[in-house]
Nucleic acid binder design. Structure first.
Lengths: 127, 127
DNA sequence: CTTGACCTTCCAGTTAGGGGAAGCCTTATC
DNA sequence: GATAAGGCTTCCCCTAACTGGAAGGTCAAG
């Protein structure tokens, strides 16, 4: 299977599939005589796995670890859970940060009249 | 005032202050005979303004616009409000995204036993 | 006079790819 | 068999907002 076919099957841009090969995340199965990357079902499954993990916000390095565990039949689920828990904490930290930003900014936006006069609580707060 | 003094007064790293000068966001007041950047109270206030705006997540370009309005006595508060509202919507979009990620990942993490056996709902979901 | 702490510019690296050029390869059509 | 369209390859530059570091000039103290 050619790279664009594999990319379509995995739901990823061709450039991304090539990038994953470059950084050694999902290698192509091999090369054709003319140098084209070839992909089989196994690589497609790994590409899909990575796409989903990336959608959860796991970094490339975390995807590398998860993929290793995915492929390892005698993995400990504790290892997977640890990585996922770390990501979950990051999400929660980001949520708290956004919540506090939202509260503050929301108050300021509400307090701003938004007319053609210069006085503005947002500017006052920042300045 | 030297750059490190100004940076300390504004609560920013020296490198960042130099970067803001490079991209034309907050120029130094001038240069000493030996080529050192000099800063006065006015620039310090602008640096503090930018630091606060950055803490709200405004981009450098948005900071440039806000700084322009900050300096413009005959600004319309509507212009400020528009920029801030845009940022607020971005925050809200990100919050919804994180909430959905959190819900899904949280379920998976809870369902994973985290022991030394290989079966794992997280891996099953991704694979 | 020298040491250490400043300052300067410039270059490279960070994340996860995207855009595009130059040049081969393949396939369809005439 | 020739040609054109499209796919593939590598390579390099670009993104945001800095951060780290190297090489070299400057300044104040001892």
């Amino acid at each position: 299977m050619n790279i664009s076919h594999a990319a379509k099957a995995a739901g990823l841009p061709t450039k991304t599939v090539r990038y994953y090969a470059d950084v050694g995340l999902v290698a192509a199965q091999g090369r054709s005589t003319s140098g084209y990357r070839t992909y089989s079902e196994r690589e497609i499954r790994k590409l899909i796995f990575v796409r989903r993990a990336r959608e959860f916000g796991f970094s490339i390095e975390e995807c590398r670890e998860l993929l290793g565990l995915y492929e390892k039949d005698d993995r400990a689920s504790a290892d997977v859970k640890q990585i996922a828990t770390k990501r979950l904490f990051e999400i929660e930290r980001k949520q708290r940060e956004l919540q506090s930003l939202h509260d503050e900014l929301s108050n300021l936006v509400t307090a701003c009249r938004g007319d053609n006069r210069p006085d503005c609580p947002i500017i006052n707060y920042l300045g």
